[in-house]
Amino acid sequence: MTVVLTNEMLQGSGHARMSTVALGQLMPMCLWLGPDHTILSMGPTLEKIIGGPDAIGKSFHDVFLIGRGGARTCAKLEPTRRIHLSLRKKPAISLRGALVQSDGGGFILNLTFGIHLTEAIREFSMTEADFASSDLAMELLYLQEAKTVVLNELRGLNRRLEDARRSAEDQARTDALTGLSNRRAFDAALSSALVDRRLSGRPFALAHLDLDHFKAVNDTLGHAAGDQVLTQVARILREETRDRDVVARVGGDEFVLLLRDILDPAPLQALGVRIISRLEEPVPFENTVCRISGSIGVVISSNYDDPTPEQMMADADAVLYQSKREGRARCTIAPPPLGQQVVTEIRTAG
């Protein structure tokens, strides 16, 4: 069964007027044109958009541009399954629809907003009554909002998971009491310093610090005093090093320092002496004070050809015990191996 629309129906008798109203309800965004493209009539929603009484009698081309966003205009209206239009007064809002030729040589267009639905609704204050019941506009709007709600939830979930991951990672890399790096974090930093040295010749020193008399503080004044001392030691080490250095607590009273861009023994010696003298400042605890000191052993990357982390740590350990043997409270720097006066980093740096 086919419905035949004629211009007489659109313009003529009472029966035909009924048809335009009825069709307007079925297709609230339809548009009737005469053979010369004059606007004859339109559905109620389109009236709201282009101003019904004002538009009637005007040429279709005064109101619409053919093509998306007005980019392409042509005067030709040809029956087509799909035509793209935009509004002259709002070129950003585009319409899509089908165009058929009516019997008298006129045209009937049925339009929809397509993807610009939300903007159009906002622009023209449209309500659900403006859409045909068969139109999927409501479903599209619904989906758009539902999608936004779900995406926001997922974004929240991702953020919470990321925060949890970060804090777990921080915990896994940090010594809980002092907030310094732990052994795991230090091992990673040392490996990457060795890679850096291999690739760009960037030198570093590795210092191993063992506290002197710490056990006595713990044994006589208790763990709370010990903890206070360790916290104070961490503070001193942080203050005496730079952001690019890494300070780690790797045992009860053992610390290691990765000091970047240093190959000269003199400033290292000075740093060691300064740290030890600050460690010796008494730490107040309850009604008494805690007194400790420290022994340090230092190795410098430039004294090696291609060291492993284990080798450097073992050597730092060895010079630390040399400091201990020689009476504690001192800093020993491992000398360069005999006969190796020209060091790698200097060669690389030119």
Binding site: E128, M138, L141, E145, A146
Partner: peptide, 12 residues
């Protein structure tokens, strides 16, 4: 509000 809005899409 988000749920209310989604429900209101059900009808005028």
């Amino acid at each position: 509000e988000p749920v209310r809005r989604l429900l209101r899409f059900g009808g005028g």
